[in-house]
Amino acid sequence: MDVFEVMRTTRAMRRLDPTRDIPEEDLWRVIEAATRAPSGGNTQPVRWLVVREAEPKRALAEIYQKCWAQARIGYASDPVVAKSAMLRSADYLAEHFADAPAVILPCARNAAAASVFPGIQNLMLAARALDIGTTLTTVHIEREAEVKEVLGIPDDVRTYALIPMGYPLGRWGEAPRRPVSEVTYWNSWKRHRERPEAIPTSS
């Protein structure tokens, strides 16, 4: 799959098929892709904790549901967001969190986010190339100590995200984005430039 198509069509997939397992080799492949991302000084601080067993997933789901119930209040206070498909899909994820075939936690000791999140993005793009859906969640941070206790993570290790993974029940597609010319400035703040039409190349 073309890398630009992968980037265009990678989006949060919160409705995952609980009946289709992810081959272990594909989990190795997406984590290997994650390890190819840059990190400060090439320190490679991230450790990727893969959760596939039912009991720890169930325990994580209980924690996640409590965190989401609190975070949801802020989202639902906006009347537009309260009626949105995004909020409905986030509710679905919370309700079915334990059904995700795999959950991955990127963890590190004393690492800047800039050394962690490029790997997370690589992982999600690699998963998309294999038709595996992912979504990046961080609401668990409010009860991170409980997450660490479930998974035996040391106190001095930070969990940067929970990433449920599975084959999506919905269809791939492009999420709405603002035009690139609207969000790009040239040489000084708010100095826009219209993007020229692409010139077809001769075959």
Rank of each mutant, 00 (worst) to 15 (best):
G74A: 07
Y75H: 09
A76T: 09
A76K: 14
S77D: 15
S77T: 14
S77F: 11
D78F: 04
P79E: 01
P79L: 00
V80T: 12
V81N: 02
S84W: 15
S84M: 12
S84H: 15
A85I: 06
A85D: 12
A85N: 14
M86H: 10
L87D: 06
R88G: 05
R88M: 14
S89V: 00
A90H: 09
D91E: 12
D91F: 04
D91Q: 09
L93R: 03
A94P: 05
E95Y: 06
H96P: 01
F97T: 05
F97W: 07
F97P: 00
D99F: 07
D99C: 00
A100Y: 03
P101W: 04
A102Y: 02
A102L: 06
A102D: 04
V103F: 02
V103W: 04
I104D: 08
A108R: 02
R109I: 12
N110E: 15
N110F: 00
A112F: 13
A112L: 12
A114I: 10
A114S: 14
V116P: 03
F117S: 11
F117R: 11
F117I: 10
P118C: 10
G119N: 08
G119H: 05
I120F: 06
Q121D: 14
Q121G: 08
N122L: 08
M124N: 10
M124R: 14
M124K: 11
M124A: 10
M124W: 08
M124E: 14
L125R: 02
L125S: 02
A127K: 06
A127H: 08
R128M: 13
A129I: 00
L130A: 13
L130N: 10
I132Y: 11
I132C: 10
T134Y: 01
T134Q: 07
L136F: 15
L136I: 13
L136Y: 14
T137P: 00
T138L: 09
V139T: 12
E142L: 12
R143Y: 13
R143F: 06
R143K: 14
E144M: 05
E144Q: 15
A145P: 03
V147K: 02
K148Q: 07
L151Q: 04
G152A: 14
P154D: 05
P154T: 06
D155C: 03
D156L: 10
V157W: 06
R158K: 14
R158G: 00
R158D: 08
T159P: 01
T159M: 06
T159F: 03
L162F: 06
L162Y: 03
I163M: 10
M165S: 03
G166R: 13
